[in-house]
């Protein structure tokens, strides 16, 4: 059974893991620059999910109905929805930073105050969606039916999975290139490694922080599109909770503060939880994911690749 489905699980895991990875980058970037776990990042993702969903509605797609459009039109609509999700999630992340975290920073608040604020902000956003949209999931809108394109050892690889994995990897490289090769990205790394000295080099720390939140939010918005393409019934007020925890776990697994670690952690977590589901049944999926996390941290407390944005790369 496990061996029969090994390749199918690997492929599904990589596709779903790419979504974790995109969200994990947001956790890791903010942690690298502020040493803050932004627990409200999962709600930034949910804002992206609703942004994508409402764009589908605005474009005339109806829950349950199959879209009656040529493939070119569908791709264009998906792109548009993705852009809306990215803009909304990016903007939400910047607003969150400004209203929830910046006032605390101005007052030199202790780290615990940031943490509880993050959790509080997360609840506020979550409950707002519940108040306005109820607690039932939105209707299912599927623009693109998954269809096998080719097979790997007899396991089908669908069009959706190809799009999601390739787009996620492209976005990862864009983010990685920004941080490592641009002037502003170098400013981000400098603030992560030594904020006071970065200021003495003329880096505007506040601006770096805003950019960090923006980048994380935009990637979460992209993840939101891929998530709804995979799980079309997933637009629900608390849909970010488990995914957020998983993405956070992925970031820690790979080494928090480390962009490459976020990618690696996301992919590994996605694959392993699929293996777990296959071996022990669906109820064990999340158990396996977190047992893996605990197991890895026992042997490598800083995660697989270690922390890098902030500390020396080894």
């Amino acid at each position: 059974m496990f061996l029969d489905r090994f390749w199918a699980n690997t492929i599904n895991g990589l596709a779903y893991g790419s979504i974790y990875a995109l969200i994990a980058i947001g956790y890791t970037l903010v942690y690298g620059v502020l040493q803050l776990i932004n627990f409200a990042h999962s709600e930034i993702f949910v804002i992206g999910v609703f942004g994508v969903y409402f764009t589908f509605l605005a474009l005339g797609f109806q829950p349950g109905a199959a879209p009656n459009l040529p493939i070119g039109g569908i791709i264009a609509d998906l792109l548009l929805a993705g852009v809306v999700g990215m803009v909304l999630a990016g903007a939400a992340a910047v607003v969150l930073e400004r209203v929830a975290y910046r006032p605390l920073r101005r007052r030199n608040a202790p780290r615990l105050a940031f943490l509880i604020t993050a959790i509080g902000a997360s609840f506020v956003v979550q409950q707002l969606f519940r108040i306005f949209r109820g607690s039932n999931p939105e209707g299912t809108i599927r623009l693109l039916q998954p269809e096998p394109v080719f097979r790997v050892f007899d396991a089908p690889v669908t069009n959706l999975q190809i799009i999601i994995v390739l787009a996620s990897i492209a976005m990862f490289f864009a983010a990685d290139g920004f941080v490592n090769r641009t002037r502003l990205g170098r400013g981000v790394r400098a603030v992560a490694q030594d904020p006071a000295t970065a200021t003495l080099m003329g880096v505007n720390r506040e601006r770096v922080i805003v950019i960090t939140f923006l980048l994380g939010g935009v990637l979460a918005g992209a993840a939101a599109l891929f998530y709804l393409m995979t799980i079309p019934q997933g637009a629900v007020f608390n849909g970010g909770f488990l995914l957020g925890i998983k993405a956070f776990a992925a970031a820690v697994l790979g080494g928090i503060g480390n962009l490459r670690g976020a990618l690696l952690g996301g992919l590994i977590l996605g694959v392993v939880e699929n293996y777990g589901q296959s071996l022990f049944g669906g109820d064990w999926r999340d158990v396996v994911a977190f047992v893996l996390l605990v197991g890895v941290l026992m042997f490598r407390p800083t995660g697989i690749l270690g922390e890098s944005l902030g500390k020396a790369r080894v």
């Binding site: 790394r189 400098a190 030594d194 970065a198 003495l200 902030g310 500390k311």
Partner: peptide, 13 residues
């Protein structure tokens, strides 16, 4: 331009 006490070298660069 200040060279800070403790030098402030970016360790990962």
């Amino acid at each position: 331009c200040q060279v800070p006490e403790g030098r402030g070298i970016f360790p990962g660069m």
